[in-house]
Design a protein around this nucleic acid. Sequence first.
DNA 1: TTTTAGGGCTTTTTT
DNA 2: AGCCCTAAAA
Length: 720
Amino acid sequence: MTSIFEENLNPHQLEAVKHIDGPLLVVAGAGSGKTRVITYRMAYLIYQGIPASRILGLTFTNKAADEMRDRVSCLLGRPLPPPLVRTFHSFGARILRDEIHHLGYKSRFVIYDEADSLRAVKEALESLKIKEDFVSPKQARVAISKQKNEVTLDRSLPLRKSSYQIQLRVVSEAYHDILKRNNAVDFDDLLILPLKLFEDHPRILKRYQDRYLYLLVDEYQDTNAPQYRLIKMLCRKHKNICVVGDPDQSIYRWRGSDIRNILNFEKDFPGTKKVVLEQNYRSTTLILDAANSLIQRNEHHTTKKLWSELGEGAKVEYLPAKDHEEEAEFVTEVVQHLVREGELRHRDIAVFYRTHAQSRVLEEYLLAEDVPYVVVGGPGFYGRKEVKDILAYLRIIAYDPDDISFLRIVNVPRRGIGKVTLDKLVAASREKGVSLYEAAKDAESVESLSSAGKRAAASFVKMIEEFREKAESLPPHKLAEKLVNRVGYFDMLKKDFPESADDRMDNLWELLDTMQSFHKENPSSGLEGFLERISLISDIDTWEDKDNRVNLMTVHNSKGLEFDAVIIVGLEEGIFPHANSLEDPERLEEERRLCYVGMTRAKRFLCITSAESRLRHGLFVENEESRFISEIFGWEEDLREEEAHLRFHDKKAEQKVAGRGQDVRTLDFCEGDRVAHPTFGEGTVVSIERGYGETLVRVLFDGDTEARLLCPTFAHLRKA
DNA sequence: TTTTAGGGCTTTTTT
DNA sequence: AGCCCTAAAA
C-alpha cells in the first residue's frame, strides 16, 4: 500500500510527503502539485499511525478546505475519519465558540461582516461627534483593521503619534466598545481574540498545542501577522509545522499579508527542511515561458523556473481592442471559437478581470450571443439587500439582539418607526445602558415617545419575541419562511422594487433552500450554526463547477483554480496594473504577481486583451497599454507592430487551438463498466468526472460501498 | 412624524 | 445598485 505514494509523486514531492517531524517548507510553484503534497502528506502521516484527530490543516477559503478534506478521505478510503481542515477564520470562530467567555464575552456571539462593521464605525464616529468629512467611515474602518493586525506583530510601535493617529485610537476604542456591547466580533477578531486568549491563558493554549500535533498550512505566502502568530504559538512545543506556498503568488498584501512570513520561515524555524517544486503539471510550455518572463521583472522574486513536460502547446494570444466593447466582442469570439474548433466546453473556459466593474460589458456581449456564463463573486448573493435583511432578522432572533441588526430591519418593511422615534429609543438605550432592543421592549417607560411610537415599538417587539419562542421548536428554514410572510416582505418588495420584486423574492427562496439543506446536513447545529457558516463563506466558496458555463471572475478569485483556456482582459496602465498601485514599486510588484497568478491558471490556451479606451465612471478614458504586455512578450518597440496584427482571426492563429490531450489519463474502463479494486473488491463505475482539478471516478462496490477515487488511486482499478 | 421621490456618489482586490 | 441626503407630500 506504500505504492500510492511512490507511484503518484515525483521525487521532490515524495521528499516533502515523507518528512514527518520538524518544520517543513515547501516552495511550490504554480501548478506544481501543492495541494497534492498537502493531501498526500496528511494521508502519509495517518498511515504512519498518527491519529487524524491530531492533524490540523489551515487554508484561506472554505472551498480549499473542503477540497482538501475530500481528497484526503479519498486517499484514505471510507473507514478512516479525515483530519480537521478549516479556514483560519472558521478555526478561530470555533475556538471562540468554546472559549470566548474567558474574554468577557457571552458565548453566543455575532460575527459582523464588513458592512456591519462599517455601521459600527459610523456609530462610533457619530457618538464622538467627529465630522464624517474629516475622517471617512470607510477609511477609518480600514485604518482600524490595519492597526489591529499590525499591533499584534510588533508591540513596540514608534511612540511619535500624529493627531490623526491619536484620533484613530479614540475611534478604534469607541468602535470596540460598540462591538463588545453588542457581543459582536469582526473578522479580524476571529484571529486576534484567540491570540489574546492564548496569551492570557497559557493552560488553554497548552490544551490546543497538545491536541494538534501536526500543522499544515496552505498558501503560507498570504498569511498575515495574527495568522503567523497563531501558527507559531500552536506549534511552539512540537515544531511539527509544514507550510506550503509560493512567494511569487502573494497577492494579499493590501489585506495585511506579509510576504516575509514565508521568506523568513527558515530563520523562524531553525532546522527547517526545504523542498522546492518546479515541475508544473498544469500548463504547456509557451504559457509557462510567458508567465516566467513576466515574473522575472520583479526585483523580489524567487529564483525558480517552472518547467513542464506537457509540450510546447499554443502560443499566448494578444488581442488589443479599440475600446471595451470591442474587447468584449473579442472575448465572445474567442470563447465561441474555442468551443467550436477547440473542442472545449464552456466550463473549461474562464475570463479574468482586475475589477468587478469590468464584468458588465462582458456579460452583455456574452448574453447577446447566447454564450452561457456565470459570474463568480462581485456584489454577490449574500450582499443583496433582501438577503441581508432577512439574515438581520434571524440574528435578532437567534442571538441577544444587537443594535446594528436591529437598526437594519426595525423599519423594514415600514412599520411607523421613523427617525424621531428611533432617536428617542437611541437616547433611552444610552441612558439606561441597554441595547436598542431592550429599550424598545421597555418603550412604554420612555416618556418622550409618542403613543404611536410606543405602539409601533411594542408590536415589533411582540413579533420578535414570538419568533424567538418559535425558534426553539421550528427548523431554521421554516422559521425564516414564516418570518418572511409575517413581516410582509414580499409586499414591500412589490411596492418598493416593482421591476425586480420577483427576482429578489427568488433570492429569498434560494436562501431558504440553502437553510434547508444546511439543516439536513447539520441537524443539530440550528439557526446559530447556520448564521455562523453564512458569515464565514466567501464568493468563491459558493461557486460550483457543475454547470457548463464560461466562468467570469476577478484575478484574485482565480487563485487556486485552473482552466483549459483563460482570457485575461483589461491589460492597460491604470486598470492592470491598477491606478492605485502605479506609484509604489512594491504594490506594482504585487500587481505583477497577480497577473502571474492569472496566467498560470491556464492549462492549454491563454489569451490577453486590452482596450485603448474604455468607459470609466461614465467617462471615456484612454489608457496606455499595460507594461505587462511587453514584459510578457519581450517585445522590442519595432517588432510590436508586426506582432500586433497577428489577430485571432488569422488562419495561423486558428491552428493553435490544438485538440485536447496532454492531461487526459487513459482509462481502460468507462461509465457502467464492471471493475475490480485490490482493497474494495468488485463494483460498477457510476461516473467519471474530468476537467476541473483532478479526475474523479465514482464506483459503487458490491455490498453498497460507494467510493470516490481520485486520479492517483484509481490507477489500481482494473476492468473486471 | 413618517413616507416618498429624486439626485449625487460610489468601486481595487476580500477572509 | 445601494446608500445617504434633502425637500416636499401624506
